[in-house]
Deep mutational scan, measured.
Amino acid sequence: EVDTLELTRQVKEKLAKNGICQRIFGEKVLGLSQGSVSDMLSRPKPWSKLTQKGREPFIRMQLWLSDQL
C-alpha cells in the first residue's frame, strides 16, 4: 500500500528543488497532461480507492523518486 499523500508531497518537493515544471514531469515521466498531473498532485486519491490503471502514475512517481526511472 502506497501513502499517496506523502508520495505526492515528496514529488512536489523534488520538482521544486530541481526546477522541474509539472508539464515536463507529466509528459516525460508519467505520460500525462499537465492538468492531470496538477490534479493528481494536489488531490491524490487514497491507494485503496485507485484502480490498477489509477495506481500506475503513483508507481512511476515512486520509481522516479528512487532514481530508477
Rank of each mutant, 00 (worst) to 15 (best):
E1S: 11
E1L: 04
V2D: 04
V2E: 12
V2Y: 08
T4Q: 05
L5S: 05
E6W: 07
E6F: 06
E6A: 09
L7I: 11
L7N: 14
L7M: 15
T8V: 14
T8R: 08
R9S: 07
R9M: 13
Q10N: 08
Q10V: 07
Q10I: 06
Q10R: 12
Q10Y: 03
V11A: 05
V11K: 10
K12W: 01
K12V: 03
K12H: 03
E13K: 09
L15W: 03
L15F: 07
L15E: 06
A16G: 09
K17Q: 13
N18T: 14
N18F: 11
N18H: 13
N18A: 09
N18Q: 13
N18M: 15
G19E: 02
G19T: 03
I20Y: 07
I20C: 04
C21M: 12
Q22L: 13
Q22T: 08
Q22V: 09
Q22S: 10
Q22W: 12
R23I: 06
R23K: 14
I24V: 12
I24S: 10
I24F: 15
I24L: 14
F25H: 00
F25V: 01
G26H: 01
G26C: 12
G26V: 04
E27W: 10
E27P: 09
K28N: 05
K28H: 08
K28M: 07
K28Y: 04
V29G: 07
V29S: 03
L30Y: 02
G31E: 02
L32Q: 04
L32M: 12
L32R: 07
L32P: 04
S33R: 13
S33H: 08
S33F: 13
S33Q: 12
Q34F: 13
S36I: 14
V37I: 07
V37Q: 04
V37K: 05
S38C: 02
D39T: 07
D39I: 04
D39G: 14
M40A: 07
M40Y: 05
L41Q: 04
L41M: 06
S42G: 04
R43A: 12
R43L: 07
R43C: 08
R43M: 05
P44G: 04
P46Q: 11
W47C: 00
W47F: 03
S48M: 03
S48K: 10
S48Y: 10
K49M: 14
K49R: 04
L50I: 02
L50H: 00
T51H: 05
T51Y: 13
T51L: 10
Q52K: 15
K53M: 03
K53A: 13
G54V: 12
G54N: 06
G54E: 15
R55D: 00
R55H: 01
E56C: 00
E56T: 05
F58Q: 00
F58G: 00
F58P: 00
I59N: 09
I59C: 04
I59K: 15
M61L: 06
Q62I: 04
Q62D: 01
Q62A: 09
Q62N: 02
L63W: 04
L63Q: 15
W64D: 00
W64M: 00
L65Q: 00
L65N: 00
S66H: 13
S66A: 12
L69R: 10
L69S: 11
L69H: 07
